[in-house]
Design a protein around this nucleic acid. Structure first.
Lengths: 159, 159
DNA sequence: GCTGAAACCGATAGGAA
DNA sequence: TTCCTATCGGTTTCAGC
């Protein structure tokens, strides 16, 4: 699925995943190109889907939403039905910001963001524990954020 | 640390954390306000730090960077020195996109993004295993992404 | 505080090198 | 392809409410 992508496109992507509020001229400056071709490339990258969306990252602490819990879940019933029910519910719940199926002993890994531990507790009770087929839930609470970035490690693409 | 924030500001933040490429007019439309005050609010929210930054989210799959591993680490030496060394290293490494200190039995939770499992293996060998004071490393590999959003669950603020 | 309009500046597209 | 230029539209400011 990996389309070929030029090193100049990579430079553009690296800049934009750090700051997408740059003007075309600023971006062009930083990568050593002039505005028009730079802008054209950005457009192409968007149309081809390399750039998925542009979002504002908010300050979780200032907004009082800085409790992060990693939660692993096992389902006892592995029928297609209960899996899809679970996944659909997960997609609907805004507190679940990430969810993956996993190798190994757990079925799902969830990243959950809430206002405080009590709210998390409530979330587990009213949602997770209610889901059919849930066997085990392990909650791992984060204390301090050392690093948190949405930037993909594109540097390692070039090797 | 939670400053008071009006429900109209919350509407703005909810829109922008979903799409920050909206023009001031479009944004104003969606929240039922006109351009000037809307723009003023966005500016204030930025200056006050509620909006941290604006970034482009890239398509990890198209870029061949879609292996996600959650990795828990225990350090055997808990001196301030080795902790800060570890954390500083983590901040420098682009493959580590998130890192938290944790309650419970593990010291750190890392989210690591790489091109493939072999590259992850290499990453663990050349970085993680080399770090002084590392006692245990557990790698949990994600298979499928069910959900992945950067949007904070602001809906639950209002209760 | 919000509204509306006016001025400015950058984004966008076309054409020449 | 990139560069240059003209137009168009958004951003930003300000006076009035």
């Amino acid at each position: 699925m990996q389309d070929s992508i030029s090193s100049i496109d990579l430079k553009i992507l690296k800049q934009l995943q750090d700051d997408c509020s740059l003007t075309a001229a600023q971006l062009a400056d930083r990568i050593g190109l002039s505005q028009s071709p730079c802008w054209r490339r950005v457009n192409r990258l968007e149309q081809e889907g390399f750039i998925h969306k542009r979002v504002a990252l908010l300050d979780a602490e200032k907004l009082g939403m800085d409790v992060v819990v990693f939660c692993t879940v096992n389902l006892s019933v592995h029928g297609r039905q209960s899996l899809e029910e679970f996944e659909e519910a997960v997609r609907r719940l805004p507190e679940v910001t990430e969810c993956y199926t996993m190798t190994g002993t757990m079925d799902y890994m969830l990243k959950i963001v809430t206002r405080d531990i009590r709210h998390y507790e409530q979330f587990v009770r009213t949602f997770l524990s209610q889901m059919p087929g849930i066997q085990e839930i392990h909650s791992n609470v984060a204390v301090t954020t050392i690093k948190n970035t949405t930037a993909l490690p594109l540097d390692t693409q070039l090797d």
